[in-house]
Each structure stands twice: as C-alpha cells, then as structure tokens.
C-alpha cells in the first residue's frame, strides 16, 4: 500500500449535497478512494450512506437530487452527466453490487448472459466472445461448473451463488471503481466469509478501488483500509481502519464500538447503549446532529463542527474530542 500515496484517487467526492424535498440528506460529504483501496462508509439507517452511494452512481430515486459538490471519477465530474452518458460509464468504469443479489438479477435471463451483457452493451466483445469471457469470470469468482451454471436462471442458484454472479457481472468490464452496498448483509455468515475473501482477492489482483457501504463493524475490520463514519447525512469521522478502532475520536464512533457485543469478554452484562433513537431527517438538530444523544454535548455544539485533524489521515467533527475519556 506504500505507493498509494503517489497515485491519484479513482473516486473523489467533494462536498456532495443530495436533497430530498429541500432537505440535505447528504450534507457536504467528501471522500477519496485510491486505486486498490477499500474504503468503508459506515452508518446506521438514515445516516445517508446508501444515498451517497446512489448519488455517485447517478441512480438516485425519484424524489432525491444531487444539488451540490462534485463526484470525480478519474478527475471527471459525473454530476453534470446526462443519463445516457452515465449509462455508458456505469457497468464499464463504475459498477455496483447490492444487498439483495436475487432481486438485483433479472429472473428471466440466464446468469451467463447477464454477466456478458455489459461487454456486449459497451461493444467490447461479440456475443460469442462475451459468453466465453462470462464463463471464465464465473469460474474466477468461484462458481463450480461455470459453463453449466451460466445457462441457469437466478432462481436455480443459491443466494451466495447469486452474489457471486453479481460480482462477476460487476467486474467483467474491469471497472475502476466497485461500489458494494451491504454486499453480505443478506447472506449467512459462512457465505459472507466466502464473499469477503473473494472481494479481497479481486482487489489485490485487479487493483480495483472499492467503496463498501455497511453497518457491520466486523466487516469493516475485515476488509477496509480506511473508514468514513456517517451520522445524520454527514461524515463525522474518517481514519485508517486500525487508527479508527484504536483511537475513535468522535463520541458517536466511540459509543458505536462500545455497544457491539463482543466474542470475548463479559457475557450477560448490561451493554453500553446510545440513548435515544436515530432521529429522522425532519428532526435533525441544528449544529452537530449527534448532540441530542451525545453525553459530551454542550451549547457550542449548536454550531456545526467541521472535520478537525486528529492525526495524519484521521479527522473528527467534534468540538469536544479532547474530553472523550469521559465516555469511558
């Protein structure tokens, strides 16, 4: 990873604002993903993590609009692109896999044809050539008897197999960036372990940049190089993965890590909890969005804290991060 520093980011999101009904549900989000790097976007429901991903892909649902900032893919801004231009970019330089692999595949088309589709659509291969490459790709993502499987429909495959098919179709055009939105959430743990191992192998071989959206700190710890923690539409902390787990510097991150039941340590004891509920966007407070649940909150938190440097590559949006030990 040493030479990463000299390279330019594949994806650079600058002050992205996405609005629904005049409310900024993604509020000035900035993040970079370097070639071969895995960046995890972590947050609870309503944090804006999935809308950030959909804004990057140009796949926002009807009511949502990206209204500010830039989404630079290899330096080229995607926000100004027409739908037609985006279609040419998606599936070629930019691919996405989703939480529900079975629902994301066309139930009526054999999986081999679905994997081959982007090669044909983008004019990179003839039909026969694309089919051959699709079978190779299916083998590559660990599908046994790929030439037979290629002719089957999604319903004939298990959930784990369907996620492999999704990954195969996302990677066949060798995209610069793969966005994976909760790619293992719907899978069983033994299948999740297989898929995480596959994603790690692929990024190593192909230098694909990966932006993974997840709520699971275990998945983050397994696969991410860097982490962005989102709360209330904003990135509240960003750090290299080891640094984040060792020295969480935002009260939300610190509490979040403390609330997870561990596989070691005391059992049956009261778990640390974060008070209150994740507020709906209509109820976000002014200033720091976490202040209504934060044990360190004071009056000055009514002013929005910017991301303040903690150490190299580690920033936290909290005015009171020097008092974090009070959380325990």
């Amino acid at each position: 990873m040493a030479e990463v520093e000299d390279r330019r980011p594949v994806l650079s999101v600058r002050d992205l604002v996405t609005e629904i009904g005049g409310r900024a549900v993604v509020d000035r989000v900035s993040l970079d993903v370097m070639p071969g790097e895995v960046v995890a976007l972590v947050g609870e429901s309503g944090s804006g993590k999935s809308l950030t991903a959909l804004s990057i892909m140009g796949l926002l649902p009807g009511a949502a609009r990206a209204t500010g900032g830039e989404v630079l893919l290899d330096g080229e801004d995607l926000l100004g692109k027409s739908e037609r231009q985006m279609r040419a970019i998606r599936g070629e330089r930019l691919s996405m896999i989703f939480q529900e692999p079975v629902a994301s595949l066309n139930p009526l088309v054999p999986v081999g044809d679905q994997v081959a589709e982007s090669l044909i659509v983008h004019g990179h291969a003839s039909r026969g050539d694309a089919s051959r490459q699709a079978v190779e790709m299916l083998a590559h993502v660990g599908i046994p008897q790929p030439d037979q499987r290629a002719r089957q429909l999604p319903a004939e495959l298990s959930g784990g197999m369907c996620q492999r098919v999704m990954i195969a179709s996302a990677l066949i055009s060798n995209p610069r960036l793969l966005i994976a939105d909760e790619p293992t959430t719907a899978l069983d743990v033994t299948i999740q372990a297989q898929i995480l191992r596959l994603m790690k192998a692929l990024r190593q071989e192909r230098d694909t940049a990966i932006l993974i959206i997840t709520h699971d700190m275990g998945v983050v710890a397994d696969i991410a190089d860097r982490v962005c923690v989102m709360y209330g539409g904003r990135i509240v902390e960003t750090a290299p993965v080891f640094e984040l787990f060792e020295r969480p510097s935002h009260p939300y991150t610190k509490l979040l890590l403390q609330t997870i039941p561990r596989m070691t340590g005391a059992r049956k004891e009261e778990l640390k909890a974060i008070e209150g509920t994740v507020p709906d966007v209509s109820q976000w407070p002014s200033g720091c969005r976490f202040r209504t649940r934060c044990p360190l909150a004071r009056e000055d938190c009514a002013e929005m804290p910017p991301l303040i440097p903690v150490t190299e590559g580690h920033r936290s949006a909290c005015w009171h991060m020097d008092e974090l030990e009070r959380i325990g």
């Binding site: 046994p144 298990s158 784990g160 197999m161 069983d188 743990v189 033994t190 299948i191 999740q192 372990a193 297989q194 995480l196 191992r197 699971d216 700190m217 275990g218 998945v219 983050v220 710890a221 397994d222 991410a224 993965v241 080891f242 787990f245 890590l257 997870i260 561990r262 596989m263």
Partner: peptide, 25 residues
C-alpha cells in the same frame, strides 16, 4: 460458524486463520 464471524477489531480479525467453508447448504 464461529470462525466466520468477522471480529470488530481489525488487528484480531486479520491475525486469524479463518476456516472458510466450501459450498452451500
């Protein structure tokens, strides 16, 4: 099953030699 759960601790998680099962149910 126990080995497949990713631990929320990158140091511990990456030091493991996970037992990854082949295939599906």
């Amino acid at each position: 099953l126990l080995s497949a759960i990713p631990l929320p601790d990158p140091k511990a998680q990456r030091a493991r030699e996970p037992m990854v099962l082949q295939g599906d149910l």
